[in-house]
Amino acid sequence: MNPSPVIEVDRLTKFYGSREIVRDLSLTVPPGSIYGFLGRNGMGKTTTIRILLGFEEPTRGSTRVFGEDSRKLDPATRARIGYLPEGHHVYGWMTVRECGQFQASFFPNWNQDVFEAVITHFRLMPKMKAGHLSRGQRAGLCLALTLAPEPELLVLDDPALGLDPVARRSLLQSMLYVTRQPHRTILFSSHLLSDVERVADRIIVLDGGTVRADCTVDTFRQNLRHYVLTFRDTPPPTPALPGLLESFRTDRELLLTLANVHPETETLLANLNPESMEPVQMTLEDAFVSYVGERGEKTFFTRDRAMAK
């Protein structure tokens, strides 16, 4: 038996008026890993998170956290979840220390040592006014407020937004620090793929309100391949290839980006009789852009088991 999942989303659909934001989305997050939640803006990441935490009602489908329906989360269950909303909001008229005291009053497991450690890590003084902090400092304060209750599940909605490189590094260090303890789970959305590559165990890619990939970073990269085919003359017309994401032609070359390449696909390519055919490694960012870019086909679904040969 696998350990019971921390997050379960089952065929979730959400409409705002006639606009469908989330479409038939299903995913499961087991305990003890760091999940990167990726997707372009407006693809349903924040909406999914808000439904997950019970701030919005699903139109159809259901979501569960620690096995409880998100619509009626028990306060004791809520205390096990740390949520950092987008934008790093703070009560500007409080000092850093007061923010801590205020937040502590809601959480029975408040750990003042953690609060102070994160504050120090971001070089904040208890007497500073929250309203006068820089973006990076505010992020540090919000993170301290989210981590001090020692949540088992941490949900961070674009925590790196607007942070300078030093503050971003501190954020990543804090995330790794959290998972020092077993069975801590982090779900974080981000557009900074180099950060994701550093810390995430797995990624979930949302596109058009639905899950298009749920796998490890390496699986994602391996499943997306870029080929350079060189020809003696003008390249032949691009054949119908399963999984074709992008194609680009030059005088003598055909550049193809493909998802989930099968041996048969390689045979199809070889049948074009190129002079040379070279697979090229892609960065995570290039792979992501090809996968969810304008020309990407919407039917591919990358999973680890697709890698099994």
């Binding site: 550093r198 892609m282 960065t283």
Partner: peptide
Amino acid sequence: SPASEVPIF
């Protein structure tokens, strides 16, 4: 260096 063609591992 993340953002490289070579995976971190």
